[in-house]
Write a protein that binds this DNA or RNA. Structure first.
Lengths: 184, 184
DNA sequence: GTCTATAATCGGATAGAC
DNA sequence: GTCTATCCGATTATAGAC
Protein backbone atom coordinates (compact mmCIF):
# COMPACT_ATOMS: atom_id res chain seq x y z
CA UNK A 1 0.00 0.00 0.00
CA UNK A 2 1.40 3.37 -0.96
CA UNK A 3 -1.59 5.64 -0.39
CA UNK A 4 -2.73 6.84 2.97
CA UNK A 5 -5.63 4.67 4.25
CA UNK A 6 -7.55 7.32 6.19
CA UNK A 7 -6.99 11.02 5.78
CA UNK A 8 -9.34 12.02 8.59
CA UNK A 9 -7.29 10.27 11.29
CA UNK A 10 -4.15 11.89 12.65
CA UNK A 11 -1.00 10.46 11.10
CA UNK A 12 0.16 9.08 14.44
CA UNK A 13 -2.92 6.88 14.65
CA UNK A 14 -2.70 5.75 11.04
CA UNK A 15 0.92 4.75 11.63
CA UNK A 16 0.04 2.76 14.76
CA UNK A 17 -2.79 1.02 12.88
CA UNK A 18 -0.35 0.06 10.15
CA UNK A 19 2.11 -1.28 12.72
CA UNK A 20 -0.63 -3.37 14.27
CA UNK A 21 -1.65 -4.92 10.95
CA UNK A 22 1.93 -5.73 10.01
CA UNK A 23 2.60 -7.32 13.39
CA UNK A 24 -0.44 -9.56 12.99
CA UNK A 25 0.49 -10.52 9.44
CA UNK A 26 4.21 -11.08 9.72
CA UNK A 27 5.43 -10.71 13.28
CA UNK A 28 7.95 -8.22 14.56
CA UNK A 29 10.47 -8.79 11.80
CA UNK A 30 7.92 -7.71 9.20
CA UNK A 31 7.29 -4.46 11.03
CA UNK A 32 10.28 -2.51 9.67
CA UNK A 33 10.12 1.28 9.63
CA UNK A 34 9.92 1.24 5.84
CA UNK A 35 7.13 -1.34 5.77
CA UNK A 36 5.16 0.50 8.44
CA UNK A 37 5.61 3.80 6.63
CA UNK A 38 4.50 2.27 3.33
CA UNK A 39 1.44 0.64 4.89
CA UNK A 40 0.52 3.94 6.51
CA UNK A 41 0.95 5.80 3.25
CA UNK A 42 3.79 8.03 4.41
CA UNK A 43 7.52 8.09 3.81
CA UNK A 44 10.10 6.79 6.24
CA UNK A 45 11.09 10.36 7.01
CA UNK A 46 7.48 11.30 7.61
CA UNK A 47 7.07 8.46 10.06
CA UNK A 48 10.24 9.40 11.92
CA UNK A 49 8.93 12.90 12.44
CA UNK A 50 6.13 11.47 14.62
CA UNK A 51 8.12 8.67 16.23
CA UNK A 52 11.80 9.52 16.52
CA UNK A 53 12.94 5.91 16.61
CA UNK A 54 11.74 2.35 16.39
CA UNK A 55 11.73 2.23 20.17
CA UNK A 56 9.47 5.31 20.32
CA UNK A 57 7.16 3.73 17.76
CA UNK A 58 6.83 0.54 19.78
CA UNK A 59 6.32 2.49 22.99
CA UNK A 60 3.61 4.56 21.34
CA UNK A 61 1.87 1.36 20.35
CA UNK A 62 2.01 -0.03 23.89
CA UNK A 63 0.75 3.23 25.37
CA UNK A 64 -2.24 3.18 23.07
CA UNK A 65 -2.84 -0.49 23.85
CA UNK A 66 -3.14 0.21 27.57
CA UNK A 67 -5.57 3.09 27.07
CA UNK A 68 -7.72 1.02 24.69
CA UNK A 69 -7.74 -2.11 26.76
CA UNK A 70 -8.67 -0.30 29.98
CA UNK A 71 -11.56 1.38 28.16
CA UNK A 72 -12.66 -1.97 26.76
CA UNK A 73 -12.56 -3.61 30.20
CA UNK A 74 -14.51 -0.74 31.78
CA UNK A 75 -17.06 -1.00 28.99
CA UNK A 76 -17.91 -4.59 29.86
CA UNK A 77 -18.91 -3.58 33.38
CA UNK A 78 -22.16 -2.32 31.87
CA UNK A 79 -22.40 -4.95 29.12
CA UNK A 80 -25.82 -6.65 28.91
CA UNK A 81 -24.35 -10.18 28.74
CA UNK A 82 -22.20 -9.49 31.77
CA UNK A 83 -18.45 -9.35 32.20
CA UNK A 84 -17.95 -13.11 32.06
CA UNK A 85 -19.72 -13.67 28.77
CA UNK A 86 -18.03 -10.58 27.36
CA UNK A 87 -14.52 -11.75 28.25
CA UNK A 88 -15.22 -15.22 26.95
CA UNK A 89 -17.02 -14.22 23.75
CA UNK A 90 -15.45 -16.74 21.44
CA UNK A 91 -16.54 -15.10 18.22
CA UNK A 92 -14.94 -11.78 19.14
CA UNK A 93 -11.51 -13.23 19.75
CA UNK A 94 -9.20 -12.32 16.86
CA UNK A 95 -11.70 -10.02 15.15
CA UNK A 96 -12.58 -7.42 17.78
CA UNK A 97 -10.49 -4.24 17.39
CA UNK A 98 -9.20 -4.18 20.93
CA UNK A 99 -8.28 -7.88 20.97
CA UNK A 100 -6.45 -7.33 17.69
CA UNK A 101 -4.17 -4.93 19.57
CA UNK A 102 -3.47 -7.49 22.26
CA UNK A 103 -2.68 -10.20 19.72
CA UNK A 104 -0.38 -7.79 17.88
CA UNK A 105 1.38 -6.97 21.15
CA UNK A 106 1.84 -10.67 21.83
CA UNK A 107 3.62 -10.91 18.50
CA UNK A 108 5.93 -8.23 19.78
CA UNK A 109 6.71 -10.13 22.98
CA UNK A 110 10.40 -10.53 23.61
CA UNK A 111 11.74 -7.53 21.71
CA UNK A 112 14.41 -5.70 23.60
CA UNK A 113 13.50 -2.11 22.72
CA UNK A 114 10.48 -1.89 25.01
CA UNK A 115 8.83 -3.71 27.90
CA UNK A 116 6.05 -5.48 26.01
CA UNK A 117 5.55 -8.05 28.72
CA UNK A 118 5.10 -5.38 31.37
CA UNK A 119 2.40 -3.67 29.35
CA UNK A 120 0.58 -6.93 28.71
CA UNK A 121 0.77 -7.97 32.34
CA UNK A 122 -0.71 -4.60 33.29
CA UNK A 123 -3.52 -5.06 30.78
CA UNK A 124 -4.33 -8.58 31.96
CA UNK A 125 -4.19 -7.52 35.62
CA UNK A 126 -6.69 -4.77 34.92
CA UNK A 127 -8.99 -7.27 33.26
CA UNK A 128 -8.72 -9.58 36.25
CA UNK A 129 -9.74 -6.77 38.60
CA UNK A 130 -12.75 -6.00 36.43
CA UNK A 131 -13.83 -9.66 36.34
CA UNK A 132 -13.23 -10.07 40.07
CA UNK A 133 -15.45 -7.07 40.74
CA UNK A 134 -18.38 -9.05 39.39
CA UNK A 135 -17.53 -12.49 40.76
CA UNK A 136 -16.80 -12.41 44.47
CA UNK A 137 -15.00 -15.76 44.43
CA UNK A 138 -11.44 -14.92 43.34
CA UNK A 139 -10.71 -18.51 42.32
CA UNK A 140 -13.72 -18.60 40.03
CA UNK A 141 -12.82 -15.18 38.66
CA UNK A 142 -9.34 -16.40 37.83
CA UNK A 143 -10.75 -19.53 36.20
CA UNK A 144 -12.86 -17.35 33.94
CA UNK A 145 -9.82 -15.34 32.96
CA UNK A 146 -7.64 -18.39 32.31
CA UNK A 147 -10.23 -19.95 30.01
CA UNK A 148 -10.47 -16.66 28.13
CA UNK A 149 -6.71 -16.42 27.89
CA UNK A 150 -6.58 -19.97 26.57
CA UNK A 151 -8.84 -18.80 23.76
CA UNK A 152 -6.46 -15.87 23.21
CA UNK A 153 -3.51 -18.21 22.91
CA UNK A 154 -5.27 -20.28 20.29
CA UNK A 155 -6.23 -17.14 18.40
CA UNK A 156 -2.56 -16.13 18.50
CA UNK A 157 -1.53 -19.26 16.64
CA UNK A 158 -4.48 -19.00 14.25
CA UNK A 159 -5.95 -22.25 15.46
CA UNK A 160 -9.45 -22.90 14.16
CA UNK A 161 -12.15 -22.77 16.81
CA UNK A 162 -12.98 -26.13 18.35
CA UNK A 163 -16.61 -27.21 18.18
CA UNK A 164 -16.41 -27.48 21.95
CA UNK A 165 -15.33 -23.89 22.58
CA UNK A 166 -18.82 -22.42 22.61
CA UNK A 167 -19.99 -25.13 24.98
CA UNK A 168 -17.01 -24.57 27.25
CA UNK A 169 -17.95 -20.90 27.49
CA UNK A 170 -21.57 -21.86 28.26
CA UNK A 171 -20.33 -24.23 30.93
CA UNK A 172 -18.19 -21.58 32.60
CA UNK A 173 -21.03 -19.08 32.47
CA UNK A 174 -23.24 -21.72 34.13
CA UNK A 175 -20.60 -22.27 36.81
CA UNK A 176 -20.67 -18.56 37.63
CA UNK A 177 -24.49 -18.52 37.67
CA UNK A 178 -24.50 -21.47 40.08
CA UNK A 179 -22.11 -19.67 42.38
CA UNK A 180 -24.23 -16.53 42.37
CA UNK A 181 -27.39 -18.55 43.11
CA UNK A 182 -25.69 -20.30 46.01
CA UNK A 183 -24.63 -16.94 47.44
CA UNK A 184 -28.28 -15.88 47.43
CA UNK B 1 29.21 -16.88 25.48
CA UNK B 2 32.01 -17.93 23.19
CA UNK B 3 32.78 -21.44 24.43
CA UNK B 4 30.75 -24.48 23.59
CA UNK B 5 28.30 -25.30 26.42
CA UNK B 6 28.26 -29.08 26.13
CA UNK B 7 30.80 -31.06 24.17
CA UNK B 8 29.06 -34.38 24.59
CA UNK B 9 25.92 -33.31 22.72
CA UNK B 10 25.90 -33.23 18.93
CA UNK B 11 26.42 -29.70 17.60
CA UNK B 12 22.98 -29.67 16.02
CA UNK B 13 21.36 -30.08 19.43
CA UNK B 14 23.60 -27.50 21.08
CA UNK B 15 22.68 -25.02 18.36
CA UNK B 16 18.96 -25.65 18.79
CA UNK B 17 19.32 -25.25 22.57
CA UNK B 18 21.05 -21.92 22.03
CA UNK B 19 18.29 -20.78 19.66
CA UNK B 20 15.69 -21.70 22.25
CA UNK B 21 17.39 -19.70 24.99
CA UNK B 22 17.83 -16.65 22.78
CA UNK B 23 14.18 -16.77 21.69
CA UNK B 24 13.06 -16.84 25.31
CA UNK B 25 15.37 -14.01 26.30
CA UNK B 26 15.00 -11.62 23.39
CA UNK B 27 12.39 -12.82 20.92
CA UNK B 28 12.93 -13.62 17.27
CA UNK B 29 14.91 -10.49 16.51
CA UNK B 30 17.55 -11.50 19.06
CA UNK B 31 17.98 -14.89 17.44
CA UNK B 32 20.35 -13.85 14.64
CA UNK B 33 22.63 -16.44 13.10
CA UNK B 34 25.62 -14.76 14.67
CA UNK B 35 24.05 -14.61 18.13
CA UNK B 36 22.91 -18.24 17.95
CA UNK B 37 26.33 -19.35 16.80
CA UNK B 38 28.04 -17.42 19.60
CA UNK B 39 25.68 -18.81 22.25
CA UNK B 40 26.31 -22.31 20.93
CA UNK B 41 30.06 -21.76 20.95
CA UNK B 42 30.55 -22.17 17.20
CA UNK B 43 31.21 -19.78 14.35
CA UNK B 44 28.58 -18.59 11.91
CA UNK B 45 30.14 -20.77 9.26
CA UNK B 46 30.10 -23.75 11.58
CA UNK B 47 26.43 -23.24 12.27
CA UNK B 48 25.62 -22.91 8.59
CA UNK B 49 27.23 -26.28 7.91
CA UNK B 50 24.51 -27.94 10.02
CA UNK B 51 21.64 -25.67 9.03
CA UNK B 52 22.08 -24.25 5.55
CA UNK B 53 19.92 -21.20 6.16
CA UNK B 54 17.94 -19.39 8.78
CA UNK B 55 14.83 -21.06 7.45
CA UNK B 56 16.41 -24.50 7.89
CA UNK B 57 17.44 -23.57 11.44
CA UNK B 58 13.91 -22.55 12.36
CA UNK B 59 12.47 -25.65 10.72
CA UNK B 60 14.89 -27.84 12.61
CA UNK B 61 13.72 -26.25 15.83
CA UNK B 62 10.04 -26.85 15.00
CA UNK B 63 10.73 -30.46 14.02
CA UNK B 64 12.42 -31.11 17.34
CA UNK B 65 9.59 -29.35 19.16
CA UNK B 66 6.99 -31.69 17.68
CA UNK B 67 8.96 -34.80 18.56
CA UNK B 68 9.57 -33.59 22.13
CA UNK B 69 6.04 -32.46 22.75
CA UNK B 70 4.46 -35.67 21.48
CA UNK B 71 6.78 -37.64 23.75
CA UNK B 72 5.86 -35.41 26.67
CA UNK B 73 2.14 -35.81 26.03
CA UNK B 74 2.46 -39.59 25.72
CA UNK B 75 4.42 -39.66 28.96
CA UNK B 76 1.55 -38.11 30.91
CA UNK B 77 -0.74 -40.96 29.95
CA UNK B 78 1.01 -43.04 32.58
CA UNK B 79 1.68 -40.16 35.00
CA UNK B 80 0.64 -40.94 38.59
CA UNK B 81 -1.19 -37.60 39.02
CA UNK B 82 -3.13 -38.18 35.83
CA UNK B 83 -3.18 -36.28 32.56
CA UNK B 84 -5.26 -33.40 33.91
CA UNK B 85 -3.01 -32.56 36.84
CA UNK B 86 0.03 -33.05 34.63
CA UNK B 87 -1.19 -30.61 31.96
CA UNK B 88 -2.20 -28.08 34.57
CA UNK B 89 0.86 -28.36 36.79
CA UNK B 90 1.35 -24.69 37.53
CA UNK B 91 4.85 -24.98 38.89
CA UNK B 92 6.16 -26.69 35.77
CA UNK B 93 4.97 -23.99 33.41
CA UNK B 94 7.95 -21.90 32.27
CA UNK B 95 10.56 -24.14 33.89
CA UNK B 96 9.93 -27.60 32.42
CA UNK B 97 12.24 -28.32 29.45
CA UNK B 98 9.46 -29.22 27.05
CA UNK B 99 7.31 -26.22 27.95
CA UNK B 100 10.35 -24.01 27.45
CA UNK B 101 10.36 -25.16 23.82
CA UNK B 102 6.71 -24.28 23.38
CA UNK B 103 7.19 -20.84 24.90
CA UNK B 104 10.20 -20.26 22.66
CA UNK B 105 8.13 -21.30 19.63
CA UNK B 106 5.40 -18.87 20.66
CA UNK B 107 8.03 -16.13 20.58
CA UNK B 108 8.69 -17.18 17.01
CA UNK B 109 5.03 -16.86 16.02
CA UNK B 110 4.50 -14.69 13.00
CA UNK B 111 7.85 -15.12 11.28
CA UNK B 112 7.53 -15.65 7.57
CA UNK B 113 10.31 -18.21 7.03
CA UNK B 114 8.45 -21.18 8.50
CA UNK B 115 4.99 -22.26 9.57
CA UNK B 116 5.32 -21.81 13.31
CA UNK B 117 1.60 -21.59 13.85
CA UNK B 118 1.02 -24.87 12.04
CA UNK B 119 3.53 -26.67 14.23
CA UNK B 120 2.04 -25.22 17.41
CA UNK B 121 -1.50 -26.08 16.35
CA UNK B 122 -0.35 -29.62 15.68
CA UNK B 123 1.27 -29.82 19.10
CA UNK B 124 -1.79 -28.45 20.90
CA UNK B 125 -4.11 -30.75 18.93
CA UNK B 126 -2.06 -33.74 19.99
CA UNK B 127 -2.32 -32.64 23.61
CA UNK B 128 -6.07 -32.30 23.26
CA UNK B 129 -6.37 -35.83 21.96
CA UNK B 130 -4.33 -37.14 24.88
CA UNK B 131 -6.47 -35.26 27.41
CA UNK B 132 -9.67 -36.32 25.69
CA UNK B 133 -8.58 -39.95 25.89
CA UNK B 134 -8.80 -39.69 29.67
CA UNK B 135 -11.90 -37.52 29.97
CA UNK B 136 -14.79 -38.82 27.93
CA UNK B 137 -16.65 -35.48 27.99
CA UNK B 138 -15.09 -33.48 25.14
CA UNK B 139 -16.33 -30.17 26.56
CA UNK B 140 -14.70 -30.83 29.91
CA UNK B 141 -11.54 -31.99 28.17
CA UNK B 142 -11.39 -28.76 26.21
CA UNK B 143 -11.99 -26.73 29.38
CA UNK B 144 -8.99 -28.41 30.97
CA UNK B 145 -6.86 -27.56 27.98
CA UNK B 146 -8.01 -23.93 27.83
CA UNK B 147 -7.19 -23.35 31.50
CA UNK B 148 -3.76 -24.86 30.94
CA UNK B 149 -3.22 -22.71 27.86
CA UNK B 150 -4.23 -19.64 29.85
CA UNK B 151 -1.40 -20.49 32.24
CA UNK B 152 0.89 -20.84 29.20
CA UNK B 153 -0.06 -17.39 27.98
CA UNK B 154 0.73 -15.84 31.33
CA UNK B 155 4.05 -17.66 31.41
CA UNK B 156 4.75 -16.26 27.95
CA UNK B 157 4.48 -12.70 29.21
CA UNK B 158 6.40 -13.51 32.38
CA UNK B 159 3.45 -12.73 34.58
CA UNK B 160 3.95 -13.76 38.21
CA UNK B 161 1.75 -16.62 39.33
CA UNK B 162 -1.52 -15.56 40.94
CA UNK B 163 -2.22 -16.89 44.41
CA UNK B 164 -5.42 -18.29 42.94
CA UNK B 165 -3.77 -20.36 40.21
CA UNK B 166 -3.13 -23.42 42.35
CA UNK B 167 -6.69 -23.35 43.63
CA UNK B 168 -8.03 -22.98 40.09
CA UNK B 169 -6.14 -26.12 39.12
CA UNK B 170 -7.53 -27.94 42.19
CA UNK B 171 -11.02 -26.82 41.23
CA UNK B 172 -10.68 -28.10 37.68
CA UNK B 173 -9.27 -31.40 38.90
CA UNK B 174 -12.29 -31.66 41.24
CA UNK B 175 -14.63 -30.94 38.33
CA UNK B 176 -13.13 -33.84 36.42
CA UNK B 177 -13.34 -36.13 39.46
CA UNK B 178 -17.03 -35.23 39.87
CA UNK B 179 -17.67 -36.09 36.26
CA UNK B 180 -15.95 -39.43 36.57
CA UNK B 181 -17.90 -40.27 39.73
CA UNK B 182 -21.19 -39.39 38.03
CA UNK B 183 -20.28 -41.68 35.14
CA UNK B 184 -19.83 -44.55 37.58
C1' DG C 1 4.79 17.95 8.38
C1' DT C 2 6.42 15.45 4.77
C1' DC C 3 9.76 14.33 1.34
C1' DT C 4 14.44 12.51 -0.90
C1' DA C 5 19.08 11.24 -0.41
C1' DT C 6 22.51 9.27 2.03
C1' DA C 7 25.40 7.56 5.86
C1' DA C 8 26.37 3.75 8.97
C1' DT C 9 25.46 -0.62 10.63
C1' DC C 10 23.75 -5.23 10.72
C1' DG C 11 22.20 -9.67 9.06
C1' DG C 12 22.22 -13.65 5.94
C1' DA C 13 24.83 -16.21 3.00
C1' DT C 14 29.02 -17.88 0.04
C1' DA C 15 33.95 -19.34 -0.80
C1' DG C 16 37.65 -21.49 0.38
C1' DA C 17 41.49 -22.63 3.88
C1' DC C 18 42.45 -25.90 7.53
C1' DG D 1 33.25 -30.18 10.65
C1' DT D 2 34.74 -25.87 11.75
C1' DC D 3 36.92 -21.51 10.84
C1' DT D 4 37.91 -16.68 8.65
C1' DA D 5 37.09 -13.44 5.16
C1' DT D 6 34.09 -11.23 2.32
C1' DC D 7 29.95 -9.77 -0.42
C1' DC D 8 25.44 -7.96 -0.71
C1' DG D 9 21.06 -6.53 0.55
C1' DA D 10 18.20 -4.68 4.19
C1' DT D 11 17.42 -1.58 8.04
C1' DT D 12 17.89 2.23 11.22
C1' DA D 13 18.72 6.80 11.42
C1' DT D 14 20.33 11.61 9.94
C1' DA D 15 20.51 15.91 7.02
C1' DG D 16 18.45 19.08 4.66
C1' DA D 17 15.15 20.65 0.79
C1' DC D 18 10.31 21.86 0.12
Amino acid sequence: MSTRPDRSKPTREVVLDALETLLLEGGSSAATLEAVAAAAGVSKGGLLYHFGSKEALYQGFLDRLLVESRAEADGTLTAPEGVVAAYLDVSSVATDPSTRSVLAALRLAGVQEVDVEGALVESFEYWYEVIARRIDDPVLARLVQLVGDGLYLHALIGSVQHDEDEQVVARVVALVAEHEAAQG
